[in-house]
């Protein structure tokens, strides 16, 4: 909760456009438009776990406001804990962290051009018709 509060304060101070949005949508480029995931599945996907679908998670950089919101509302861990988790996974050869792209706009561009790619965005961002919303936070 404090992380969320801290992030919102930062957003207000630096005037990030997503500051007004406190909900997240998870968007994918899939042929099957009926896929729906729950929070546990989204968490698994972005923490490197296997899923029944062939999907590639992509994420935003660590200090990005939308990533902080995603960490808080979906993963349920602090950024530092997530960084520690990926250090453990990488140096034990178990899993690799999702590819990072620079901004929300770059997330959309990447998903559109890569079938199977999945990313998270703040609610309010215009989602192209060819993409599928897999999950929305309450």
């Amino acid at each position: 909760m404090k992380t969320l509060f801290f992030s919102l304060i930062i957003s207000i101070v630096i005037g990030f456009p997503a500051a007004a949005n406190t909900s997240i949508v998870v968007v994918a480029n899939t042929e099957n438009k009926d896929i729906q995931l729950n929070r546990q599945q989204v968490r698994n996907l972005f923490m490197g776990g296997a899923l029944s679908y062939d999907l590639e998670a992509i994420s935003l950089p660590p200090k990005n406001q939308t990533r902080v919101l995603f960490n808080t509302k979906v993963v349920g861990l602090t950024e530092s804990r997530i960084q520690s988790y990926w250090a453990q996974m990488r140096f034990t050869g178990r899993k690799k962290a999702p590819k990072e792209v620079a901004s929300e706009k770059a997330v959309l561009e990447y998903i559109k051009s890569h079938p199977g790619a999945v990313g998270y965005l703040p609610v309010g961002v215009s989602i192209p018709d060819e993409l599928t919303v897999l999950y929305s936070t309450p």
Binding site: A50, L51, D54, Q83, S84, Y85, A87, Q88, F91, T92, G93, R94
Partner: peptide, 29 residues
């Protein structure tokens, strides 16, 4: 497959929760 992984060679022993990452202090509090 994305669910199955096989590793062959010299590896860390995974006795305890952190024993294969004991040298990576950043990974634990």
């Amino acid at each position: 497959t994305n669910a199955l992984k096989l590793k062959l060679g010299r590896q860390r022993t995974p006795f305890l929760n952190y024993s294969d990452v004991i040298d990576v202090g950043y990974a634990y509090p």
